[in-house]
C-alpha cells in the first residue's frame, strides 16, 4: 500500500474519531455530576439527527435547524434524566443502567415507527468537492466535524471555568455533599449535565449525518466506539477523549483497509479490553489529589 493512501485513510479515520470523542465527551458530562451515564446516548444522537432532518424537509433553513436540533437534544437529555436516572440515583441504585438502555430502545422503536427503517441522506449546504491539503483529500464535511466538535467542547469547557454555574458544576463533581452545603442543588446540576450531554449528542448527530446518512441503526456502531473511547481515555479525562478518539478512528480506518472491512470494529474492542485490564481509570484518568 502506498503512503498517500495510507495517509488518506488515517486522516479520514481521525475525523471520524472526533465524532467518537464528542459522544464520549457527552458521557463524561453526566458521569462528572452523577457517576451515571446514559446508555441510550446513541439513540439520542439518532433521534436528534432525524429531528433535524425533518426540520430541513419542512423547509427550515440550515442555520436555524442547528439551534433547534440542539434544544431538542437537550430536552431529550432532560427526559432521560427524569425518567431513567433520577429515581435510580435517589435510591442509590444502579437501576439507571437498565433504565437508560430501555429509554434508548424506546427511542429506537419510536424512530422506526415515525421515520421508517431506511437510511436517509442528510443534506449539507457545503460543496462536496474535497480540498487537497498536503496530498490528502479533506472534505468540507470533515472540516465541519472538526470545527463543530472543538467549538461545542470548547464552549462547554469555557462555561465550566468562567461562570459561577459552571464552577458549581465542577464542585458537584468534586464533592456532591459539600456542594449542597454551599447552596448548590445537586439535582439541578445533574439535570444540567444531562441537558448539556443531550445537546452534545445532537451536535454529534448533525455533524456525522451528512457523512454516514440517517437511519435508526446509525448510532449503534458509533456508540460502541464512543464508549470504548470514554473508558480508554478515562471518564474524567476532559480533552483526553480527543486524543484517544482520533487514535481509534485512525486505527479502525487502517485496519478495515488493510485487513478487510470485517475488522473495522476490532481495534475499539481490543483497546477497551486492554484498557480495562491495564489501566481501569483510563489513560488520562485522574487520580484524586488529596491531602489530609
Amino acid at each position: 500500500m502506498t503512503l498517500p493512501i495510507f495517509a488518506q485513510m488515517a486522516v479520514s479515520g481521525a475525523f471520524m474519531g472526533l465524532v467518537y470523542a464528542l459522544i464520549a465527551y457527552g458521557f463524561q458530562l453526566t458521569y462528572a455530576t452523577s457517576k451515571s451515564i446514559n446508555f441510550g446516548q446513541g439513540e439520542l444522537v439518532m433521534v436528534s439527527a432525524f429531528f433535524s432532518l425533518t426540520l430541513l424537509n419542512l423547509g427550515v433553513p440550515y442555520w436555524a435547524m442547528i439551534p433547534c436540533g440542539l434544544v431538542f437534544g437537550a430536552a431529550m437529555g432532560l427526559v432521560i434524566e427524569r425518567t431513567a436516572v433520577r429515581l435510580a440515583l435517589e435510591q442509590k441504585s444502579e437501576g439507571w443502567i437498565l433504565l437508560s438502555i430501555i429509554g434508548g430502545l424506546f427511542l429506537f422503536s419510536t424512530a422506526e415507527n415515525i421515520w421508517g427503517r431506511d437510511d436517509h441522506p442528510f443534506p449539507t449546504p457545503m460543496s462536496t468537492d474535497p480540498i487537497h491539503v498536503l496530498g490528502v483529500d479533506v472534505t468540507r464535511n470533515e472540516i465541519a466535524v472538526a470545527v463543530g466538535v472543538f467549538a461545542i467542547m470548547g464552549l462547554i469547557e469555557l462555561f465550566k471555568r468562567r461562570t459561577l454555574l459552571g464552577k458549581a458544576f465542577e464542585a458537584v463533581s468534586a464533592d456532591r455533599d459539600a456542594a449542597e452545603l454551599m447552596g448548590i442543588s445537586a439535582t439541578r446540576t445533574v439535570m444540567l449535565s444531562y441537558g448539556l450531554s443531550g445537546a452534545v449528542a445532537a451536535v454529534a448527530g448533525i455533524l456525522v449525518s451528512p457523512i454516514t446518512t440517517v437511519g435508526p441503526t446509525m448510532a449503534s456502531a458509533l456508540i460502541l466506539k464512543a464508549f470504548s473511547v470514554a473508558v480508554v481515555a478515562g471518564l474524567d479525562s476532559g480533552f483526553g477523549v480527543v486524543v484517544i478518539g482520533m487514535m481509534l478512528g485512525i486505527l479502525e480506518s487502517l485496519s478495515s483497509f488493510q485487513l478487510g472491512s470485517g475488522w473495522r470494529e476490532a481495534p475499539g474492542l481490543v483497546l477497551l479490553i486492554l484498557a480495562l485490564a491495564l489501566r481501569p481509570t483510563g489513560v488520562f484518568g485522574k487520580t484524586a489529589i488529596r491531602k489530609v
Binding site: 465542577e170 464542585a171 468534586a174 464533592d175 455533599d177 459539600a178 485522574k286 489529589i289 488529596r290 489530609v292
Partner: peptide, 9 residues
Amino acid sequence: EGRKVFGPL
C-alpha cells in the same frame, strides 16, 4: 467535618 474543600478547584 474533614473540611471538604473542592480539591480540583
